[in-house]
Write a protein that binds this DNA or RNA. Structure first.
Lengths: 231, 231
DNA sequence: CCAAAAGTGTTCAGGCTACACCCATGT
DNA sequence: ACATGGGTGTAGCCTGAACACTTTTGG
């Protein structure tokens, strides 16, 4: 069935910048898919696709994420809308970009899916991207950096149980600067949002590390009182 | 001429939240237009309209602003894209919202224009708005509050020459809290971004106030060195 | 001389930075 | 016993908050 309008209309898509964190390599990563069709056939691109007329933008982003990368229940937030006229060579396409944060547990399921090839790349070493996806990615990374400083989103990138060193490595690789161990620990613990568990993380030939979990309930309470995370 | 597509497409619009500041009343204001057509006929709404297929989103926002309110050369930044399915009763409409900051000099020209009636309203006393424009406005105000704390955008709302008291009143009415006069002056002057002029602002029966201007060149230099405004 | 807003410094407390050593474990 | 990362405290500095009086003008 065809659809006819008085004036020409832009096509509307969503694109997602999906971040993941590899604790063993202490590297921030992005999920890309390889395009099977022209234009930019065989190039790497952000997962995304057309917005259906009966779904919201958020729903479209979540649907595409699930279809293309098999990820669900991730942190997802709208980023920016890209609307230069020639960003797609075929026709006018306006894209609402989102960024997503995923926990490592979801990673394995992510790669093993769908028709298109999906792969994690370290943000420090990305392949050339299709369309204006490099610009979208840069915007997302800048946003993640800003967000991480003021809101506790870092936990979205770690497993439910994590060590303070893992958290510090995450902050360091996102912000791109080394942080002082003692000051970092003092600061994050001072917020009283991390609950120490009765377990430890043992790995390698050294003292085991205390495991913590993030307390989202307590965070919601603090937020209502006009609280800033600030690290 | 008709335009036909394989799948139904959402219409794409831009809407602008235009802020102004009335120094004499120390009140933050928003520019609204009265709708001449259904739906929401005679309701107040944000200025905005359809995005043409050959113009970028930024261009569309600027064009609508000029057509509907006769404002040009204002600070304009993309805010958020609103895409719930039923936000427009007629059909699916996705709206890219912008917010704009205008200097008082532009205000007079703003009201006296175009077919539709345009008026400034204090943000503390808005009429009911059409569509989901109340939500868009709330998002814009929150964004302006955040932005003002970290970037020197306040000057976009003041005339080129202004007094420190005017600047303080602006901050107070946007942030919604009274500020300490001495601390405020110390802080803003410490950034070294305000240039004292050889003129004073005389008004009423009291000591005249020093006039300042903002130094955007110096700001650009500082910004490159990773500087934060922070007030 | 009175009313009204402009302009100006100091003190105190709390947070940020810098910094070095002992602890628990596996081999 | 040694190698490896885990874990801890303090002192100086700087920044933010609180706070009251003098100055300049017009009427």
């Amino acid at each position: 069935m065809k659809h006819t309008y008085e004036y020409p209309r832009a096509a509307l898509t969503v694109d997602c910048v999906v971040f993941g964190f590899d604790s063993t390599q202490a590297a921030l990563q992005v999920l890309l898919i390889r395009r099977g069709l022209a234009p930019f056939k065989d190039h790497w691109a952000l997962p995304g696709g057309f917005v259906r007329v009966e779904e919201t933008l958020d729903e479209a982003a979540r649907r595409e994420l699930e279809e293309e990368t098999n990820l669900s229940t991730v942190f997802l937030e709208q980023l920016y809308t890209f609307g230069t006229v020639d960003r797609d060579p075929r026709e006018r396409v306006v894209s609402v970009a989102y960024y997503a944060l995923t926990k490592p547990a979801d990673h394995t399921t992510a790669a093993s899916t769908d028709a298109a090839e999906a792969r994690w790349f370290p943000v420090s070493d990305l392949p050339p991207l299709a369309f204006d996806h490099a610009e979208i990615f840069a915007t997302a990374l800048a946003r993640l950096r800003g967000k991480l400083r003021y809101e506790p989103v870092g936990f979205e990138l770690l497993p439910p149980k994590f060590t303070l060193t893992q958290l510090q490595r995450l902050y360091e690789s996102v912000l791109g600067t080394p942080l002082d161990k003692r000051n970092f620990r003092k600061k994050v613990l001072s917020h009283d949002l991390l609950v120490p568990l009765k377990e430890t993380h043992r790995e390698g030939t050294h003292r085991p590390a205390q495991l913590f979990r993030f307390d989202p309930v307590r965070y919601e309470k603090l937020k209502k009182k006009g609280f800033l995370f600030e690290i």
